[in-house]
């Protein structure tokens, strides 16, 4: 399984803080994103935004980063700390 986390406005928009996806068929982050977008209109829109950032195992990653069982993937909007 892959653990998926959502933060801030994205978490609120999806009404979901975390979920797990089976690793089968998931080669990279773009495939994880595509699988999530299949969950419905709300998911398709929210995860399709160009400014979303993604982290793999708590480090910033890109669409082509490879995923494997046990990985933690996080999606979040641009950061606003400080």
């Amino acid at each position: 399984m892959i653990r998926i986390l959502f933060f801030a406005s994205l978490r609120e928009e999806l009404g979901c803080e975390q979920l797990e996806l089976p690793v089968a068929g998931m080669g990279d982050i773009s495939q994880v994103r595509a699988a999530l977008q299949q969950r419905g209109e709300k998911w398709a829109v929210a995860l399709g935004r160009g400014n979303l950032q993604v982290a793999l195992n708590q480090a910033l990653a890109g669409d082509s980063s490879t995923v494997k069982a046990g990985d933690e993937v996080a999606f979040f909007p641009p950061v606003t700390g400080g």
Binding site: F7, A8, L60, F76, P77, V79, T80, G81, G82
Partner: peptide, 14 residues
Amino acid sequence: IIDLLKTEAPFWKK
């Protein structure tokens, strides 16, 4: 450090 923190550290304000 503060410039990098503002653009890289995962914090979100509401």
